[in-house]
Design a protein around this nucleic acid. Structure first.
Lengths: 188, 188
DNA sequence: GTCTATAATACGATAGAC
DNA sequence: GTCTATCGTATTATAGAC
């Protein structure tokens, strides 16, 4: 893996995270990374779409590591999940509501326009869900519920990011953390 | 209110719903609505941003009506909320995962780039939250919990739309419906 | 292999005719 | 008020020099 290639991905990741996929031009990415236009098409022959896939894969893997880290560090599954969401709220706030990962934006913008990007996002979400599910199996839930819980955790997380960024407040994500905590204690 | 103006908003709403805000060009909106370019800038002197605000306001009001309709029709607050989410899942599936409202996309794409659009989305979310909160007050929740529950309902809804569209399946939204149902029965 | 120069096109926006 | 023609500048992508 080339160093320059990774640098392009990193810059693209940052820009797409704050601006979105379509609002981020290749020119801007190249200007900020210092790389010339030709090298982008050398590393990513299929252009912006292929770069987008790389951004999703890279950022997806990074966030998966973070989830795994918190899940490994905190033994109680309920505390582990709510702590991760609370940490996310703090990160979004600390970034002045310009962060929250590029995947939410790319997933939404590509949902009906690029199967390739859509599938990349889908796979990332699946992996995150698996990580949460694995931890939840430590709790007293049957397998179907584990899958459902891991699913709504991702949904509430992604939605919470949108709301928090929209209203410039960590509150929506903190609400998610609190009520997911309640939900995980609930065996109806 | 002009008829042509509404037509432009409607077309813009549809296109931004499937493609997103930045991916939808003014030229495309005008081509599909049949209106000439000049009339767009007559109705929306501030250009695309003002049109976006109109799209958010219009779509926000429409969806608010739908929420109010279901909340009024179904007496039990828990059933009312879960039914609305289940209906949404069916609508997204019926639209071949190209629907889900333009606001999610616009909110995310404008979060860090346009305070005007961001605020329009924020206000819409606030209104939806108020509608759900009003209904939840029929249940046995204290006021702080009502606010938190209404908040996570919106978050899970928005995130569920993204996941359902990403994986071309109603399952994530159905998971949200099921677990929100559990959460609303839970008084910890 | 790395980069520059340029192509072709679409963008949002405006000026001005009617 | 309504619409047409056009402007300047983005966009993505490519061709070809080194």
């Amino acid at each position: 893996m080339s160093e320059k290639r990774n640098q392009i991905i990193d810059i693209a990741c940052q820009l797409m995270e704050t601006q979105g996929y379509h609002a981020t031009g290749l020119n801007q990415i190249l200007a900020e990374s210092g790389a010339p236009k030709g090298s982008l098409y050398y590393y990513f022959p299929d252009g912006k779409e292929e770069l987008g896939v790389a951004v999703v894969a890279n950022s997806g893997r990074l966030i998966e590591q973070r989830i795994r880290g918190v899940m490994a560090e905190i033994e109680d599954p309920i505390t582990a999940v709510t702590t991760f969401i609370t940490m996310l709220a703090a990160q979004v706030e600390a970034a002045d509501y310009r962060a929250g990962g590029p995947i939410t934006a790319i997933a939404l913008e590509s949902a009906s326009t690029s199967d390739r990007l859509r599938d990349a996002c889908h796979q990332v979400y699946q992996r995150w869900q698996d990580v949460f599910a694995e931890k939840l199996r430590q709790g007293n839930f049957d397998e179907a519920r584990v899958r459902r819980l891991a699913s709504i955790i991702i949904s509430a997380l992604e939605g919470g990011i949108i709301l928090s960024r929209s209203q410039h407040s960590p509150q929506p994500l903190l609400d998610v953390a609190a009520e997911i905590g309640v939900l995980l204690q609930c065996h109806v």
